[in-house]
Every structure is written in structure tokens, then in C-alpha cells.
Design a protein around this nucleic acid. Structure first.
Length: 559
RNA sequence: UGGGGUAUAGCCAAGCGGUAAGGCAGCGGUUUUUGGUAUCGCCAUGCGCAGGUUCGAAUCCUGCUACCCCAGCCA
């Protein structure tokens, strides 16, 4: 599986390879440690591919561990969704799903250990006071008045915190490290805070919860994680990560390695902001096809392989501040679907065409391949009748020079069928084009017409047999490359009003019986995916995953 | 003006002292009953800038500059 991800080298892979070659590494164990406070997005996919990919390449294991130390923000629903997303992406975690909360007892005992060693203390300062005592980036902090509290007292207080004797915010447990450290993370970081919250895994057993810093490294050590890979913003936490490993009787010595998180233009990868879009109803849930969530991309029509391919393309480095062009993502999915998606014809904006030299009751059926290069994708039946629909974009009353499609007096090839000529344009009362009257050259089926070249080919659907369907044209959710670039502005101001355009389309008959999530190339238009929700309910709805490359649009833009 | 990081083409990214991979985007040709695909070609005398070491530097040294992260009882 995911053999395509086995070729691209990166600094982490090189490092592990070197360790193995030097005999300094045994079995590799990595982990993907999401917090269940939202849905996974494309940035997580990068981490998933890295962690699971590494384990796979070196014959090791990758654990799935929920970093569930903040019950106020976490939910079982997110846990379920995350598990499904990881599986859907094509990865299998080793052993059972793990939770940081599995280690709460151990962590508590270790907190007591630190207190006894004089390396931790219960602090009565308020949150505001702690901030004040912490100092600033340029000024050292000052010790809390409670810093030298006797271990016995701290032990007692911590136990009473645990069983709920104190209100939230009344006390915290802090490590005693260095209030003057230039690294703020070492200025007596908080180990436990009081939270009278129900926890999705541990219920009401705890009234205190450990902080990320006090949890992560120890959890890694308990699981025998060898390489703890995280993003660059945790770099400053590494000394703290190591401080705990140094000062606690942990069973193993994991190493933290940081890499740069993914930034994709025209998209947001902030869980907080994605949640806001969902909560405000600006998008249709966490799996809205415009969202860069794994489930949104799935619903949009991305394949797991295309996402893995994309993650391989962008690489893994420590260079931050970069911005990956979303064109790379589009390339990855087009490449997959070009090879694997069956073809179909679908008219997005129907324009009626009457073939005047075809009798009313005439009907002929063509058998055409499901894919130009994949016999295994079968064939489909395409009926032609006197009345049919073509796309409005494929006709122009006053065409520019390089317009190869239909125009008054001009000829065009109906894909898989005849060459037709437009003889007459019928207009409605408002002057809008309501119908085209065309004639068929019956000597052009499967061959070129005599004595002239017809360059254009357009798709079409029989009016008598076409199936009405809803087609949702998705585009970037934002109109600017970095919607959250300006910290003082509202990213919602950059929403693309045309991120979703709904069409009442007409598709070829074979499209009438599709299964949820089946993907097609609508020829000359783009790649589409049968909406997993709507189709399951019996409605014919297709989501545009990505358009085909459009060199005509480029020519037009150039003038 | 504290600490920690990062700079290679429009974008992503290899490279680790021997003379700048690859991909995306773009441009041009060929093929084509998808203006798609495929295919061929073009696209960094130069690696943030300035010095230095060396026969030789993107790779080593020195000094600058720019950008990113950190002052949650979030992760």
C-alpha cells in the first residue's frame, strides 16, 4: 500500500535511515497524536503520511493516540471521525487506539514523584498573577511566593485538587525549573490544572487534567515511541519534553523531531477557524466539499491515493513560512482520476438543439468505451435522438476567430456521433437564445467529413433520455491566497461568493444509477463525484472535484 | 532591544567541498472524435546579502539582512 510514498527522501527519513545503518536504532515506532477537538484536515494528512509512512518504510509501527487532556474542547464524535479519516486515507495503526488519558494514573504518580523530589509545587497564584510573574520575552520572571512550599503540603493540595476540593483556577501544579530562563516554556510550566469537566474517556474520575507538556513526552515514552514527530512551533518545548524524560523514571527515551506545517494558498488550516465556519453555518458541516478537511475532500471527490501523492509531492522540511500552491493538489487528483475515472457526458447548462433532418421517432444507440485507455472500465450506451442538449458554453452567436465550437453556419462534431451544422438560432421574447436548429451530416459517423476539417468536438445528451441531476460546482472557499494573513482583519471578508454554484444539469442515461462516491470524468468539463449523502438518499447529486485543464479559458483571458 | 528556527527559480523541493535533481505553474511543437490525456522541447553562469578559506564553495568560516515561532491554567 501507498508504495508511491516510498521514494521521496526527506530529512527525517534520512536521519532514521542513518540511525539504522549505524546500528543505533531498533524497531521504529512513531505516532499520530491528534486532539479530538475538530476534524482532521490536509495539514494532518501530511503528518499522517509522514508518521505512518515512516513506520511502513522501516518495518516499524505507528500508533494512533488521542491527545485528550482538555475535556472542555473534546468530543467522542471527533474521535470517531478521526479514526474513520485515518483509515480512509489508507493507514492502519498498530494495536488498539490509544489515549493520553490511558496514562492519567501514571502521570499523576509522576507528578507526585516530582513534588517529592522538590521539582514541582502547587501554586495558589491566579492565572493573571502567574502571567504577571512569568515576565516577558525580554524580562525574566519572578518566583511565585508558593514556590518553596513544602512537598508534603503540595502533595496534600494536589490530592485535594484531584478530588475536587477546589474551584477551577484556584490552584495549579507547576514544575520548578527556572523562572529566569530565556525560554519561557521553562519558567515553571503548568503540569496540572483544575477542570470540573466530564471527560469523554475517563468520565468524572478526575477533577484535574495534565497539560500537553506534562503528557506528551511521557506518553511517548510509555508507548516506546522512538521518533516523536511534531510541527515547528513545538521546537521551544523540546527542552521541556526532555526535562521530563530526564527527571522521571520513564521506560524509554523518545526523540522529538520537528518539521514545518503545511500552508496551502486559498485555504485555511486552522482548526479554530474551520470550526467557526462550521458553527456559523457558512459551510455545510465539517465535510463540506469546500473545506480542506479530510472528510470534506473525500466528499468533494479526492481519492486517498491523490492525497498521499500530494503529501509526497510537497515534501517534508524545516523551512517555514512557505506557501504551497493549491495547483499541486489539483494536479494530484487530476492525475489519479485521468487514469481511473470512467467517462460520461453531462450538460451543465443545457441549450436545446433540434436536429432537423432526424425524424421525430428516430433513435440510434452508440456503444462507447467507459475510458479511452481502460478496457476494464467497460462500455456504456449513448442514445441519439432528434432533440438533444448541448452546453451553453459550446455555442456563440458571434464567435471569435479561435472558437472551435458551434456557431451559426458552423460545424462541430458531437462527441461519439455525427458532425452537425447550425442552421438557425431561435430566440425567446427577451432575445435570449432558446434553441438551435441544426442538421446532421450522416456521412461522418466514425470518420472525418469529406473535403473539410471539423476541429471542434462537443459533448451532448439526448433530450428524451438524459437524466436531470444537480451538479455542484465547487471553487476555492476564499478569493485571496492567504485569508488569515492580516491578523487584524476578518478572514470571512475574503470568502469567495462563487465557491458553490449549483447547476440543474442533464447527464447521459448511464448516470441514472450511480452509487455514492463513484467518480467520473464528465468529458470536456471536469471530474465529479456522486455526493455520498444525497445519492444515498436517492437524489442524483454530483460534486465537482476539479475542472479539467482549460486552455480555451486561457486563450480567452489573453484576449 | 530575550530565546528558538528558516532562507536554492513564480511555488514546493533535492543537494551535505568537485562545478545546480525532480515536481507544480508557465511558454512552444507533435498527436488527438475530450481546447483533456500522452509526448517532445524551453524555463537558476547561479543557491538571501557581503566578505573570507580552498585548485575548487549552495555546501566550510565571519558579519549582515529578511521571514517564522514563543509571554494559554490550548495542543
Amino acid at each position: 500500500m501507498s508504495t508511491e510514498s516510498s521514494s521521496a527522501p526527506n530529512f527525517i527519513r534520512n536521519q532514521i535511515r542513518d540511525e539504522i545503518e549505524a546500528g543505533r536504532a531498533g524497531k521504529i515506532v512513531t505516532r499520530f497524536p491528534p486532539e479530538p477537538n475538530g476534524f482532521l484536515h490536509i495539514g494532518h494528512a501530511k503528518s499522517i503520511c509522514l508518521n505512518f509512512g515512516l513506520a511502513e518504510q522501516f518495518g516499524g509501527d505507528c500508533h494512533l493516540r488521542f491527545d485528550d487532556t482538555n475535556p472542555a474542547k473534546e468530543e467522542q464524535a471527533y474521535i470517531d471521525a478521526i479514526k474513520e479519516d485515518v483509515h480512509w486515507l489508507g493507514f492502519e495503526w498498530a494495536g488498539a487506539v490509544r489515549f493520553a488519558s490511558d496514562y492519567f494514573d501514571r502521570l499523576y504518580a509522576w507528578a507526585q514523584h516530582l513534588i517529592r523530589e522538590g521539582k514541582a509545587y502547587v501554586d495558589d497564584l491566579s492565572a493573571d498573577e502567574i502571567r504577571e510573574y512569568r515576565g516577558t520575552l525580554t524580562e525574566p520572571g519572578r518566583p511565585s511566593p508558593y514556590r518553596e512550599r513544602a512537598p508534603e503540603e503540595s502533595l496534600d493540595l494536589l490530592e485535594r485538587m484531584r478530588i475536587g476540593e477546589f474551584a477551577e483556577g484556584e490552584k495549579v501544579l507547576r514544575a520548578k525549573i527556572d523562572m529566569a530562563s530565556p525560554n519561557i516554556n521553562l519558567r515553571d510550566p503548568i503540569l496540572y490544572r483544575i477542570r470540573h469537566a466530564h471527560h469523554h474517556q475517563t468520565g468524572d474520575a478526575w477533577k484535574i487534567y495534565p497539560s500537553y507538556d506534562f503528557t506528551h513526552g511521557q506518553s511517548d515514552a510509555l508507548e516506546g515511541i522512538t521518533h516523536s514527530i511534531c510541527t515547528l512551533e513545538f521546537e521551544d518545548h523540546r527542552p521541556l519534553y526532555e526535562w521530563f524524560l530526564d527527571n522521571l523514571p520513564v521506560p524509554a527515551r523518545p526523540r522529538q523531531i520537528e518539521f514545518a506545517r503545511l500552508n496551502l494558498n486559498y485555504t485555511l488550516t486552522s482548526k479554530r477557524k474551520l470550526k467557526l465556519l462550521v458553527d456559523e453555518g457558512i459551510v455545510d458541516g465539517w465535510d463540506d466539499p469546500r473545506l480542506p478537511t479530510i472528510s470534506g475532500m473525500r466528499r468533494r471527490g479526492y481519492t486517498p491515493a491523490s492525497i498521499r501523492k500530494f503529501c509526497e509531492m510537497i515534501g517534508v522540511t524545516r523551512a517555514d513560512g512557505g506557501l504551497v500552491d493549491i495547483a499541486m493538489l489539483y494536479h494530484a487528483i487530476r492525475a489519479d482520476l485521468e487514469d481511473n475515472a470512467p467517462r460520461a457526458m453531462c450538460v451543465l447548462k443545457p441549450l436545446k438543439v433540434v436536429l432537423t433532418n432526424v425524424p421525430e421517432d428516430h433513435e440510434e444507440v452508440y456503444e462507447v468505451p467507459g475510458h479511452p485507455a481502460r478496457d476494464d472500465l467497460g462500455v456504456r450506451q449513448i442514445p441519439l435522438t432528434r432533440e438533444l442538449y448541448i452546453d451553453q458554453d459550446d455555442f456563440m452567436e458571434e464567435p471569435p476567430k479561435k472558437f472551435f465550437r458551434l456557431a451559426p453556419g458552423k460545424e462541430v462534431r458531437l462527441r461519439n456521433a455525427y458532425v452537425i451544422r447550425c442552421d438557425e438560432v431561435i430566440k425567446g421574447a427577451g432575445g435570449e437564445i432558446s434553441e438551435l436548429r441544426c442538421s446532421v451530416d450522416f456521412d461522418t459517423l466514425g470518420k472525418n467529413p469529406e473535403g473539410r476539417k471539423v476541429k471542434g468536438v462537443i459533448h451532448w445528451v439526448s433530450a428524451a433520455h438524459g437524466v436531470p441531476m444537480e451538479v455542484r460546482l465547487y471553487d476555492n472557499l476564499f478569493q485571496v491566497e492567504q485569508p488569515d494573513k492580516d491578523k487584524d482583519a476578518d478572514f470571512l471578508d475574503h470568502l469567495n461568493p462563487e465557491s458553490l454554484v449549483v447547476c440543474q444539469a442533464i447527464g447521459e442515461p448511464s448516470l441514472a444509477r450511480v452509487t455514492p462516491e463513484s467518480r467520473f470524468q464528465f468529458e470536456r468539463v471536469g471530474y465529479f463525484c456522486a455526493d455520498r449523502h444525497a445519492v444515498a438518499e436517492g437524489r442524483l447529486v454530483f460534486n465537482r472535484t476539479v475542472g479539467l485543464k482549460d486552455s480555451w479559458a486561457k486563450i480567452q483571458k489573453k484576449g
